[in-house]
Each structure stands twice: as structure tokens, then as C-alpha cells.
Design a binder for these strands. Structure first.
Lengths: 340, 340
DNA sequence: CTGAAAGCGCTTACAG
DNA sequence: CTGAAAGCGCTTACAG
């Protein structure tokens, strides 16, 4: 490992100025392209900048501009299935603007959360992104006294804040419309616990799209259970105990869908010939390995993160960003499990 | 969204000094606890610090100390199954020392990678962690000219650098020893492509532990294939085509194990009664939903990240850290799939 | 025990 | 067109 004491000293603006035979002000001006100067002078400065591989010290610059060009990203998604794409989107959208992102993984620990927040504020972050793993869950931090703008993604900050969320209902409608279009008529919905807000929203989308297609919900209504494969199995047992089982199952997430498909195979019910199955989340590593590969609704998390990052940047730059929830459309990733 | 222009100005050391009726030097000294001063003065200063919620500006502090108390975390693991726990460990280990971590997701794009690296250097990071998703893969960045210490995790930086890796061979031996202890004698190994270094290391552990137990490898040797469920199915077909199928299968990862277990169920072979199955990675969300739940080797990625972060910190603080690979032991997470 | 001053590496009016 | 100076918010010798 290269040791810091053996490392070459970084060049400063004084080194550049001395070598180019100008003042540090001229170097600064040449670099920013602001003040107009003799083309020859500018070129000479820029040449030296390149020779010395000079990069302005962001801390010194920030001291003056009161902008650190950093933001903090708080998340409680320790597992990362949802937060990671969001995080990527945020960093991706911001790096083009020279903004770097501090990662803070909170994991339900208020003390840890507070120390992360303190560290961020000391580092003078220009803003904060709060990324949740579940919409109706509050992160263990008090953002009330924050002196910088912040924004929520995959977590609802309430009416006074800006929140970016997937359009769950629209995503559900996509899935149902897709099944209807391929001739399915008895479309059941198997999903997670009713206390999860997204479960209700997805069920609502299922119901609304069916109504629009002139179809009745299959069975007594949406089947709320758990977000697990095991629940998928159980739901199939229930559904196939009736006289008229469904010809399509729209599942609230990919794990349930996986359980449904496995259970159907064990019963000798063919997917997609007898029953179409569509999941939610488009968890690719699981969806692609399902037999047959699982069609699923993609929440576009990366794009969600990107837009949240850019909107935060606007707010940092002084724009008035009206508070409220912004929904981004989902897209359907059709695979074999829902073929006509 | 709270707008920056409406935000209360942050208190500076001058505000504190004025209000406490002392000089800024005294405030600084009181805060650092360095210079000795009248207890009463110190208390007065600290009281005002609290009243004004004063936090020293890290950029100003860093300008002087030439330490930013930040590090960069480069990773090419876009999916995040492996990198996320590592990232968490790194941040967790460092936040206690006041060090914040910049996240840079690289995803095979050298241009993006370079711009992330440039941003990090401008921000004056004190060091860099390089976290891979696969040991024998080089990240698309040239770290050669770096002027700060760096360290590798889940990626091998070669003989001149410090790298933290799981002890793959030891992990494999754990799995095999566990199966031997529960009476299994014909232990097969189904794993990923031979060109992956970890596949070779895990196979080596399997072979070594069997030898130590006085057992021969089951079949013609380790079965190299793909890191997928589908390969697990195919391998079962091969294995059960022989006269004497195994009574245990050690799998190179959890996806293969999942495929193996599913395939065995379809054949009516009982797990664990007839065959024990153990996976690798301890990918909990999958392992726990497998029927029966899957025993698996855990690489301790979080701890790996934590230690890497702390070692980087030592190097930053000037310690001489001898280069080379450091292996951390894996642990076995036994579940029902390998019960005696 | 406490304060005035220099300096960290920049940027930005302000002179000339 | 270019330079000298002030200032961003701290820390650290150095006086007193």
C-alpha cells in the first residue's frame, strides 16, 4: 500500500502560478474561463496545469463558495435489493454535475443514524437524499432541523416534502392489461400484507384495470398474505381448491410469483399455457431463473433515483421545488410466464 | 422542501467566540480539549456551542490538517448482492472515527470510472477502498498514479497491494466437515465455471477436507458448470444417472443449491433425509425460502468490509501496512437442508 | 490562561 | 490584461 508520507505532494495553485510566471489569481481565472485574458497566457497556464496534473482543492473552493458539491444518501435498506438501484441512479445523475455522494446505511439504529447525520453536516453536504426500503416506513432520523434541502425516494416524506415514488397502481394496471390482452379472463391477485401501502395500491390497480376491461376480479378479492414464496404456494392451494381456478395470477412481488409458479408446476398446471403469471419488482436474478422465466413489473428504480438526485440539485441551486409526491411510471418486462 | 436561502445561517466559530466573550482561538482550544484553560471559560464556551448548535466546518478544518476525513468506495458490483454488505461494513467501521464514505458505482464504464476518481481526488479523500464483485476481475480504473493509500476488498490487488478476501477454501472445508460429521460419505461438488478463481478454491477445499476425512471425492471430480439454478438441475440429472448417487451435494453457490434441491424434490429424493445439500454465499432471502431452508457458507462480507476500512484508516494514519492478501474465515450457517 | 496573527488553498472584487 | 489583497472557517504556534 502506497504510504501517504511517501506520496508526492499535490500541486497547489501557487505551484502552477510560479511555473507559469503569473499570479494565482490569473491561474484561477484561466481555469474558470471567466476573466478574459491573452490567449497566450491562458494557454500557458493550462499547459502547466496539465503538466503538474493540478486539480483545485474542493475544500478550499468550498470554503469560499459555501458549496461542498457533496450530498448525503441516507438509507435503511440494509439488504439493498431496492435501495441499490436507487443509490446508483442518484450517484449517476449527480456525478455529471461534479457532485459526489456520501453513503449512510442506517439499519434501524437511531444512534448510528444521528452520528451519520452529524458527520454529514460537518462535511457541509449541500443536500440529503433519503432512500427507503419501504414506502410507509419512517427512517430513524429526525430531519426536522436540517439546514439543507432534502428529498425522499422510495419513502414518503409527507405533504411538506418532495418524494419520488413508483406509480404502483399504474404498474399493476400494466400487468393486468398485458394479461387481458393475451386473452386471460379470470385474473387473480396474490400479494403481501394489507398493512403495506404498496399492497393496497397494487391491488387497486388490479381492480381498476379489470373494471376497465369489463372483467370482474377473480375470486372474493385480492389475496393478502406475506411477501414470500411460501405464501405463493399456499395461495395456489386455495385457488385451485375452487371449481373454477384462475387463468392468470398477478402477484404482488416476484417471490410470491416464484412460489406460485413452483406450486403450479408441482400440480401439473402449465405456465403459461394454462395460467399466466406476472410478478412485481423485476428482480432479475430471480425472474430469469424461474421456470419459465417470470414476467414482472419494473419500478424503474434507477431512473427514480436519478430524477430525485437532479431535483435535489435544483433545490440546492435555489429553485423552488413544490412539495408533494411525484410518481414515475413502471414498465412491464414480459418474459415467458405470461406468453399468450 | 426547505430552501437554502430561507435556511438559518450556520453558526461559525466567530459567532461562538463573540457570544462567549472570548477569542476564536479559545473556542477552538476548548472544543479540542487541548490547551488548558480555566474550567469556567471552557464551560461557558461549551454552553454557547450547544446553544448555537455549532459544528466545526470540516472543510475549513481539513484545509488546515490536510485530512478530509473522507474516503472513496469504488465498486463495480452493480447488482450489489456482494458489494452491499461490504459497503456497509466499510462505512460502519469508519463512521466511528468520523470518516464518511463516498459511493462510486462504476459498472464497467471507464469514462464514468475516471470521472468518479477525479471527483474523489478533488474532494481530497484520504484513501480509497476498491470493492469488487468477483475476485479475478479488474475494475476499469487505473489506480497507478494515486497519491492516497488504497485497499482492495473482494478483489485481488496483486502482490504489491493490500487485499481482503474471504477464505474460500476454509469455507468449503467447513461445509464438507459439517456433512461428514452428520454421516455423509458420498459428497459431490457442483459449482460454477472453472475459470472463476473462487470455483477452483472452493473445489480445492472440498477435495482437501474429504482427503482429511479419509473419503474419496464422489464421482469423477468437481462438476464445473454455471452459477445458476438451471445448472443445479442439470447436475442432479447427471448425478442420479449413475449407479450410486451421492448422499450429499456441496454447491458452489446458493443458486446452484436451490436448483439442486428443486430438482431432487421433483425426483422424489428427500432433503435432508436422503441427501444433504449445502450452498455458498448465505444469500439469506433465497436460503430461507428454499424448501427445506438451505444451509450455506457465509463469507462474512460485512466484517471483511469493516476490517478493510479500519486497515485503510491505519495506512492513512501513517502505519506501514504490509502488502498481500488477507483471508478472513467464513462461517457455516446450518439450516434444515443438511440436518443429520 | 487567553488573544493576535499567520496560514491552509482557493475565489473574487478591486486597482492599476 | 494581470496582480495584490481580502476573506471563506478553521488550527496552531507564539506572545503576553
Amino acid at each position: 500500500m502506497r504510504q501517504p508520507n511517501s506520496a508526492p505532494q499535490k500541486a497547489t495553485i501557487h505551484d502552477v502560478a510560479a511555473r507559469a510566471g503569473v499570479s494565482i489569481a490569473t491561474v484561477s481565472l484561466a481555469l474558470s474561463g471567466r476573466g478574459r485574458m491573452m490567449a497566450e497566457t491562458r494557454e500557458r497556464v493550462l499547459r502547466v496545469v496539465k503538466e503538474l496534473n493540478f486539480r483545485p482543492n474542493a475544500m478550499a473552493r468550498g470554503l469560499h463558495s459555501k458549496r461542498s458539491f457533496t450530498v448525503g444518501l441516507l438509507t435503511d435498506d440494509v439488504y439493498g435489493r431496492f435501495a441499490l438501484p436507487v443509490m446508483q441512479g442518484v450517484t449517476e445523475g449527480l456525478i455529471d454535475h461534479g457532485v459526489s455522494v456520501f453513503l449512510c446505511a442506517l439499519e434501524d439504529n437511531p444512534v448510528l443514524a444521528q452520528s451519520h447525520l452529524d458527520a454529514l453536516m460537518e462535511k457541509q453536504v449541500d443536500g440529503i437524499v433519503v432512500a427507503g426500503r419501504r414506502v410507509d416506513r419512517i427512517l430513524p432520523v429526525d430531519l426536522g432541523g436540517l439546514t439543507v434541502p432534502f428529498i425522499h425516494v422510495m419513502s414518503d416524506g409527507g405533504p411538506d416534502r418532495v418524494s419520488y415514488l413508483p406509480d404502483e397502481e399504474q404498474g399493476a394496471r400494466l400487468a393486468v392489461a398485458h394479461m387481458v390482452a393475451s386473452g386471460r379472463r379470470r385474473i387473480a391477485h396474490v400479494t403481501g400484507p394489507a398493512r403495506f401501502r404498496v399492497a393496497g395500491e397494487r391491488a387497486q390497480g388490479w381492480r381498476a384495470e379489470l373494471a376497465e376491461a369489463g372483467l370482474a376480479p377473480h375470486g372474493p378479492g385480492a389475496m393478502f398474505g406475506r411477501w414470500s414464496e411460501a405464501w405463493g404456494h399456499e395461495a395456489v392451494a386455495e385457488l385451485w381448491a375452487s371449481d373454477e381456478p384462475p387463468d392468470a395470477v398477478f402477484c404482488g412481488n416476484d417471490q410470491i410469483a416464484r412460489g406460485v409458479i413452483d406450486a403450479l408446476r408441482e400440480r401439473g398446471v402449465r405456465v403459461p399455457a394454462d395460467v399466466a403469471v406476472v410478478g412485481f419488482d423485476n428482480w432479475e436474478i430471480v425472474a430469469e431463473e424461474t421456470r419459465p422465466p417470470l414476467s414482472s413489473v419494473d419500478m424503474n428504480l434507477r431512473e427514480l433515483g436519478r430524477q430525485a438526485g437532479l431535483t435535489l440539485l435544483e433545490a440546492i441551486n435555489g429553485a423552488q421545488v413544490p412539495p408533494g409526491v411525484r410518481r414515475l411510471p413502471c414498465v412491464l418486462r414480459a418474459r415467458a410466464s405470461s406468453a399468450p
